[in-house]
């Protein structure tokens, strides 16, 4: 948690959503690593800014409704993995930590094992502290509903926070490996080179028109 997220972004707590988004983009223009050619100070600053922005947004959202953007497509569509979930041996915990008291994560893991990923995410949303375990469970549940980008990001964070946890490593590997068979087959074609004019010169004209119209 960041103590003064508004200060990091450079806006007052009374600022509107739009003003906050604008201020964030101004900051990104200054510090984003892609426009700073890897200056380490800038990268560090950018991750602070990201954390602050996320915190402001989730605080605002929880005041309004419940966690983040809550429109109909907030959480993907349909489970691609069927009832058994993407990760075979999920939930075999207990070897690393002794658990005595009931934990919210028991509920989360229960939902995940049953393939109820959305319910698992709802419980995760209500847990304020984001531990390595939180990121790990979120990665599995997000993978379950097809939110692959969040799944990858959260699995990475879990491993970063607890590099020696084999279960976290295994899930990260599983997510990353999901793309490797495709990548191999894709590379077999070689790098595609633009040769649009081989299809129809009409398209070049069409594209030109679209550019002129700004479409």
């Amino acid at each position: 948690m960041i103590s003064a997220p508004y200060k990091v972004i450079g806006v007052l707590p009374t600022a509107s959503d739009e003003e906050i988004a604008k201020a964030y983009r101004k900051m990104a223009k200054k510090y984003h690593p892609d426009v700073n050619h890897g200056a380490p100070e800038a990268a560090k600053r950018m991750s602070e800014i990201n954390a602050a922005y996320e915190q402001i947004k989730s605080e605002k959202a929880s005041r309004k409704s419940g966690g983040g953007y809550s429109g109909p497509t907030a959480y993907g569509g349909g489970s691609p993995f069927g009832q058994n979930g993407p990760f075979g041996g999920f939930g075999s915990y207990g070897n690393s930590q002794q658990r005595s008291a009931y934990s919210e994560f028991d509920t989360v893991r229960h939902y995940i094992r049953a393939g109820h990923y959305r319910e698992a995410l709802n419980v995760l949303d209500s847990i304020p502290t984001r531990s390595a375990e939180w990121y790990y469970c979120s990665a599995v549940a997000n993978a379950g509903i097809g939110n692959k980008i969040t799944a990858l990001e959260h699995a990475r964070r879990a491993v970063q926070m607890e590099p020696n946890n084999l279960e976290y490593q295994r899930v990260l590997q599983q997510i990353v490996n999901g793309g490797s068979a495709y990548q191999q087959q894709s590379q077999g074609y070689g790098i595609p080179i633009i040769s649009m004019n081989k299809i129809c010169i009409g398209l070049c004209l069409a594209n030109l028109c679209c550019k002129i119209c700004g479409g």
């Binding site: 964030y24 922005y53 953007y69 959480y75 993907g76 569509g77 097809g146 939110n147 692959k148 969040t150």
Partner: peptide, 11 residues
């Protein structure tokens, strides 16, 4: 809304 989670607009 400036949503930072890429899964949301892409879905």
């Amino acid at each position: 809304s400036g949503e930072l989670n890429p899964d949301i607009p892409s879905n």
